[in-house]
Amino acid sequence: MTRRAYDDGRTAAYNYAYLDEQTKRMIRRALLKAVAVPGYQVPFGSREMPLARGWGTGGIQITAAIIGPADTLKVIDQGADDTTNAVSIRRFFERTAAARTTEATAAATIIQTRHRIPEQPLAAGQILVYQVPLPEPLRRLEPREAETRKMHAWAEYGLMHVRLYENIARFGEVTTTYDYPVAVNGRYVMAPSPIPKFDNPKMDMCPALQLFGAGREKRIYAVPPHTRVVSLDFEDHPFRIQSWTEPCGLCGATDTYLDEVVTDDRGGRMFVCSDSHHCETRRAEGHHGPMLAAAASIHLVEKEDAA
């Protein structure tokens, strides 16, 4: 018996941006509630998506619910546009929503991200959509959802401060380097998703709208533009971000988040910007890092003779 084709490349069988309009409405209602109560995790009827749970289904559902033909979409993973899952998600929206896509941060109206906030400051009118694996900042302290919801309702965050204090007592500092908890608008403690704590200050008073989607855990939350986002700390142990002793090997930047690239099996390594578009933009502007020529020899970059 010949059956209906499922994966034959004809996306016309699916609605614009994959989700049906009823589902998009449901997600938009959850988004409105999330924006109205900054940092509060709104349960939503997360759909089963054709991409795997844990691979961005929360962010994909939000993007699908808000994207329109006038939008320009940028998708990054680890700060880069060309990591495989970012490519896969961008292809998904090109296929299902004929989305106009870009790698330029400033040109995007929607930026879906995993694990980074772009280095270039975001502007009013832009929307940053985060993919969130574990939306509950208290989960490692209390595994039961019924309990953590009560703790949020009562703003009972003492346990979190005790954990940070214990870190300092044991290691001399808070040892959380990513997904570092923040307080939003002076009320809810929120998981910023596994962005490095380096990016936390970018969330504070950001002019762009920040939306967070956790597909598997079925939660949506938001930080509206110009909202206070404070990383938890103590007066005598203030929050601080990562820093590096050397600049980006490719573009020479000293104020960006760097990834470490192992260049050989004799301990050789170099540091490069994790935000690939930012790094390329700087190089196009004529900035050169100390390792740029060496990077060509390990095929990290290519030399373009025409330019």
């Binding site: 749970r53 995993r114 694996p133 380096f198």
Partner: peptide, 29 residues
């Protein structure tokens, strides 16, 4: 199991930004 498999297997996705944070921390400590 579909949700569990997705989340267990998402560990295959790149995590080098977060891992860099851990590297920086452990070297400094």
């Amino acid at each position: 199991n579909v949700e569990a498999a997705g989340f267990v297997e998402h560990l295959k996705l790149p995590h080098y930004v977060d891992f860099q944070g851990e590297l920086e921390l452990i070297r400094r400590i």
